[in-house]
Amino acid sequence: MSWKDTPKVELHLHHEGAAPPAFIRQLAHEKKVDLSGVFNDDGSYAFRDFVHFLSVYEAATSVLKTPEDYARLTTAVLEECAANGVIYAESFISPDFCGGRDVEAWKEYLHAIQEAATKAEADHGIVLKGIVTCIRHFGGEWAKETALCAAETKGDFITGFGMGGDENQFTQGTFKWAYDCAREAGLQLTTHAGEWGGPESIRQALDDLKVERLGHGVQVIEDAALMQRVIDEGVTLEVCPGSNVVLGVYPSIDAHPIKRLRDAGVKVTVSTDDPPFFHTTMTREYEMLEQAFGWGQDDFTALNLVAAEAAFCDTATKTKIKKRLEAV
């Protein structure tokens, strides 16, 4: 079965990481930027492992210099999402890349992104919300500035605060001030944990940052007591199976714990993370999960309803999303 047109909700999508390689190459050509080493011979992104992926990601991102660049990026990303049936998406957007954490510059970038998102909603029926994201390996002080940018722009579009980057750098608690600031501003919270840092990184995220969702979070499967805590507290996992396999967290989709987590009662959702880097789309994720676990329409509708309920948006938007999902 083709899952291309099935309505989907995606909660874990990095804005720059979703940039089609052709878009980045075109922008580099226009700006006369040398991106040697960023692409394979076939035009796809080239990286060896997770740490190298981060450096390639930042090199590709380096051509995104202006609000207009981000408007074009947003259009390209949302067109691709909508072509794969996504009706609602949340993307991680970082003031580190959009104005260097200067609040006024950040607002200019944000305005451009939001304008492009509004047009994409009118053209393709896809709703986008933004999660302001600090970069873990940049450290706690820069995260404070990022949180202030988030607090200043919290509203209908900016609804959440999160953290990406190298999970092996610092502890979750290093970023407590930033998360407290975002929480006080009324933003909902997520963080990358349990992709590389093991169950302990998840425990830190829950104890120190008090997040509602976990980016990846799959390594919770290694700690039965912690998994029960995640279930009891209703924490939702933003699971990215294809990403986990490409980066070597798990050797194959068959070995991925998403089914075991779901069967145990953990709230799991499905996302692509950085889709062109990992040679995936939301359609491809569904195809792999169908093949590995025999999941069908009822399973995917249920997963999407979990995602809609966990989405960082207002009740009216959630209701509209759920109606579109339930109509299938």
Rank of each mutant, 00 (worst) to 15 (best):
Asn40Leu: 10
Leu289Lys: 15
Cys81Phe: 08
Asp223Pro: 04
Trp106Thr: 13
Val86Ser: 04
Val127Pro: 10
Arg203Pro: 01
Ile131Pro: 07
Leu206Gln: 01
Pro20Phe: 13
Ala46Leu: 11
Glu287His: 14
Arg48Ser: 09
Ala89Gly: 05
Ala255Val: 03
Gln26His: 14
Gln219Asp: 08
Ala60Arg: 06
Glu30Leu: 11
Asp96Val: 11
Pro257Trp: 00
Arg284Phe: 13
Ala316Met: 12
Val33Arg: 13
Glu108Ser: 13
Gly164Cys: 04
Thr280Ile: 11
Glu68Ile: 02
Gly43Ala: 07
Cys81Ala: 07
His29Met: 12
Leu148Tyr: 09
Gly217Cys: 03
Val246Pro: 04
Gly265Asn: 11
Tyr57Arg: 05
Leu64Val: 00
Gly197Ser: 03
Val230Asn: 00
Thr236Glu: 02
Glu108Asp: 07
Thr74Trp: 03
Arg324Trp: 09
Ile202Met: 03
Asp208Gly: 00
Asp207Pro: 06
Leu78Ala: 01
Thr153Gly: 05
Lys320Thr: 14
Gly140Thr: 05
Asp42Val: 09
Asp49Ala: 04
Tyr250Cys: 01
Lys119Gln: 15
Ser2Asp: 15
Ser271Asn: 08
Ala18Asp: 11
Gly125Ile: 08
Lys8Tyr: 14
Ala151Arg: 05
Ser94Asp: 05
Asp156Val: 07
Pro275Val: 10
Pro67Trp: 01
Gly37Phe: 02
Glu195Pro: 04
Leu35His: 12
Phe53Cys: 05
Ile24Val: 14
Ala117Met: 10
Ser2Trp: 11
Trp295Pro: 13
Gly155Lys: 08
Thr301Met: 14
Phe312Glu: 12
Leu78Pro: 03
Thr146Ile: 02
Met1Glu: 13
Asp299Glu: 15
Ala46Tyr: 07
Val38Ala: 13
Ala307Lys: 15
Phe278Asn: 12
Cys98Asn: 09
Val306Leu: 12
Glu290Met: 12
Phe157Lys: 00
Gly43Met: 03
Pro95Thr: 00
Asp123His: 11
Val249Lys: 07
Gly140Cys: 05
Gln188Tyr: 06
Phe23Glu: 10
Ile87Asp: 01
Glu108Arg: 14
Val266Trp: 08
Ala224Gly: 04
Val220Lys: 02
Gly99Phe: 02
Gly165Gln: 00
Phe161Gly: 01
His124Asp: 10
Ala193Phe: 00
Ala89Cys: 07
Asp102Ala: 03
Glu238Arg: 02
Lys129Ala: 09
Asp232Lys: 04
Glu326Lys: 15
Ala264Trp: 09
Leu128Tyr: 09
Ser36Met: 09
Tyr57Gln: 02
Cys149Arg: 05
Thr118Ser: 11
Lys323Tyr: 12
Leu261Tyr: 09
Val211Asn: 02
Ala112His: 10
Lys8Val: 12
Glu195Lys: 01
Gly125His: 10
Ala264Arg: 12
Leu237Ser: 04
